[in-house]
Simulated assay, not measured.
Amino acid sequence: MSQFYTKKLHAGSEFPKLPITLSNGQTTTLGKPRSGFDWQLVLVYRGKHCPLCTKYLNQLDSHIANLAAINVDVIAVSGDSQAQLTEHQLQLDVQFDIAYGLTLTQMKALGLYISDPRSEQETDHPFAEPGLFVINGEGNIQVVDISNNPFVRPELTALVNGLTWIRSPENNYPVRGMHR
């Protein structure tokens, strides 16, 4: 049974700071908001082989202005190679940063489910199943959603509306799900 053990990240825990490479070749750190933002939404997607990921990334782009208005930085990452990301970007119409090269060690550090490709036509490497993390100003996980398949992901309008409510000072909304 130990082969099935994974270490999941918990709400309220510190998000690991992981170095990643952006599509433009620059490096940045997951979990460290950029450009004056104080929160960060990290979206881990399966890779270019997943049409549901392409659709979700394109849908997320329509929410970027609302996320920026509540001071939330957005970054997406997969285990794809730079060449795979470059090819994938032809199908994407997004204004947020996308990174590539998430390693198996990093996937495990994020507590993600990891799958092997069904064939060489799908992809050429093990890949992370979807994960979404919202890291607050203290560097802790405010919202976490980890799935073992591409069919279950947070509905983006509800997520952005919820984050808007959480970020409003008069609501004083704490991290939820703290019992382990």
Rank of each mutant, 00 (worst) to 15 (best):
M1A: 15
M1T: 14
S2C: 10
Q3G: 11
F4H: 14
T6W: 09
K7D: 09
K7R: 15
L9C: 09
A11G: 07
G12E: 04
S13G: 11
E14T: 13
F15G: 01
K17A: 15
L22P: 01
N24Q: 05
G25Q: 12
T27E: 14
T28V: 06
L30P: 06
G31N: 10
R34M: 10
W39E: 08
Q40D: 06
Q40N: 08
Q40A: 07
L41A: 05
L41P: 00
V42T: 13
V42R: 01
L43K: 11
Y45E: 05
R46V: 12
K48D: 13
H49P: 09
H49L: 04
C50N: 07
P51D: 03
N58V: 08
S62Y: 05
I64D: 01
I64P: 03
A65N: 09
A65S: 14
N66D: 15
I70L: 05
N71C: 06
N71E: 00
V72L: 03
D73E: 03
D73A: 06
A83Y: 01
A83K: 11
Q84V: 05
E87Y: 05
Q89H: 07
Q89W: 01
Q91C: 09
D93I: 04
V94K: 02
A99I: 07
L102Q: 12
Q106Y: 10
Q106D: 15
M107A: 14
A109F: 05
L112H: 06
L112F: 04
I114P: 08
D116Q: 15
D116G: 03
D116T: 12
D116Y: 08
P117Q: 02
S119D: 07
Q121N: 11
Q121W: 06
T123E: 04
D124R: 12
E129P: 03
P130T: 07
G137M: 04
G139M: 09
I141L: 00
V143N: 00
P150E: 10
F151E: 14
F151P: 02
P154Y: 07
E155F: 12
E155Y: 14
A158M: 15
L159M: 11
V160R: 02
N161W: 06
N161P: 04
G162S: 14
T164F: 01
T164I: 07
Y173C: 05
P174N: 13
P174A: 15
G177A: 09
